[in-house]
Simulated scan of single mutants.
Amino acid sequence: MSGSSTSPAHRLVRPAPRPVGRPALRSVPALPAGASDDLQAEVAVLTELLEVADQSLRRAEEETVSLTEQLQVVQAERDAELEDHLGTLGELERARAEGDALREALLRQGRYEEVAAAAEAPAGLPTSFADLWERLGTLVHVRVTADRRITLALDEQAEARTWAAKAWSGLAALESYAAHRKDGFAGGFHQFCRNPPTGARVYPVSQVAMTETSATMAAYGQERIFPALEGTEAEMQAHLKLAPRGNVCPRVHFLDDVAGKGASGVVVVGYVGPHLRNKRTS
């Protein structure tokens, strides 16, 4: 047996050399099971809550801006209504002063019976459009051809009483205009209200419009053609404003057919109802 041979069982195995350089890293202790998922879930919930809070804050800011704008609109409407009432009050005071002057003149002339007759209380203003409709027969120089159903539907609105009273005042002004026109007044209804003759009943001139804009007529002119006399139809741009603003904002459209060749001698009212479409409201 050769002395150089060795048995596999006695062969020495040297250990593998340790790498030279960076020392071996210690392992990071593992987190408790589920801890990382819980933390992420909590962060997600907090993030969502912050987003909800941010959205709520933005909505609150938008609502504040919206409420401010609505308040400004309401204030503007109230200012316009106040101006309207002040104008009406001014017309009333002017009419009262004229009445007092005429009464004094009659008394100085000894015309006591006429003063007594004039002192009898006239019918008050209508309290509804149904009431107004019942009085149309008392008008001599005004013919109303408007659709009764559209007019009476205005009574469903909260402001109906005010609108009906103003509509009657407008019809009375048209009646007064037609009578004075036949007696020699030279001019249209707008001029009549701006510079009325003695004893005239007028409508606030700021609430009288004799024409529509060309853009409105081009787009919605057909809506301003209404029944006239003897089964005919006519374009009626002229109108009285019963309210300065609002969703309904009623109008009284009429045709001045008092004077001129072939005129009927009356004012024709073809529409009493909600504001018609125009280029500003459509």
Score class of each variant (00 low, 15 high):
Ala153Gly: 01
Thr88Ser: 08
Arg11Leu: 14
Gly231Thr: 09
Lys182Pro: 00
Gly188Asp: 14
Val266Glu: 10
Gly34Asn: 02
Asp256Trp: 02
Glu91Met: 15
Gly265Lys: 10
Gly137Trp: 03
Thr138His: 13
Glu235Met: 10
Ser4Asp: 13
Val208His: 03
Trp163Asn: 01
Phe185His: 08
Arg251Leu: 00
Ala44Phe: 05
Val252Glu: 02
Val202Tyr: 02
Pro204Trp: 05
Ala123Val: 07
Arg245Gly: 00
Asp257Met: 11
Gly99Lys: 06
Arg148Ser: 07
Ala153Tyr: 00
Val202Asp: 10
Ala53Asp: 07
Pro204Ile: 04
Gly260Asn: 10
Pro197Arg: 05
Leu89Lys: 13
Tyr271Ala: 07
Arg135Asn: 06
Leu132Met: 02
Lys279His: 12
Cys193Ser: 06
Pro196Lys: 12
Val272Asn: 09
Asn247Gly: 03
Leu154Ser: 02
Leu171His: 13
Ala153Asp: 10
Met1Ile: 12
Ser7Met: 07
Glu61Gly: 01
Arg103Asn: 04
Arg181Met: 06
Gly188Asn: 12
Leu31Trp: 09
Gln72Glu: 12
Arg143Asp: 01
Gly265Met: 07
Val52Lys: 13
Ala228Met: 05
Pro122Phe: 02
Glu114Gln: 15
Ser214Pro: 00
Tyr177Glu: 11
Val208Cys: 12
Arg108Val: 04
Pro250Gly: 02
Arg201His: 12
Glu104Val: 13
Asn278Trp: 01
Glu42Asp: 10
Val266Pro: 06
Phe226Ala: 04
Ala105Met: 08
Pro23Arg: 11
Gly110Glu: 07
Leu102Glu: 15
Ser7Phe: 12
Ser282His: 07
Leu25Tyr: 05
